[in-house]
Amino acid sequence: MSDPTEASSDADKADRTRIAQQFIEAIPHARALDMRVDDLGEGRAVISMPWAEHLVGDPRTGVIHGGVVFTLMDTCCGAAVILHPSNPKSTATIDLRIDYMRTATPGQRISARAECYHMTRSVAFMRAVALDEDSDNPVATATAAFTVER
């Protein structure tokens, strides 16, 4: 039997995802990379994008450039900050460190999952992971600090 509160929270979630997708599409560079919002929660987000020829950083292998993975992680962290239950008005990256653990497999979608692991009045502490279809072996991880405008 379906629980009515769960049904309404599913509807809320679909609504939030739609709003977040509109938010992403309002960012010209996120649109240029064809980013898609896959999942959202309180202080967390999952955003993915497809592999594309023009994003290749190593022509010998067809592997996507690290800068693309960085951009996806940064966008995903920013979205997760905004989705924090304390309702930040806006945010900006203070610093972001990315560790490139392996090359992303050419042709596969890349998805980033970001979460806020600590929030203060003015700073959000974030971590994120980037995955391709082999989700047991992360492509990259990131830690970041973001500003929080109240």
Partner: peptide, 20 residues
């Protein structure tokens, strides 16, 4: 125009700056 990350300010996307 495609480098923009914040259309309101506007500002270049932080990821683009990092990639650069």
């Amino acid at each position: 125009g495609k480098l923009i990350g914040n259309p309101r300010l506007p500002a270049i996307h932080g990821g683009v700056t990092a990639a650069f």
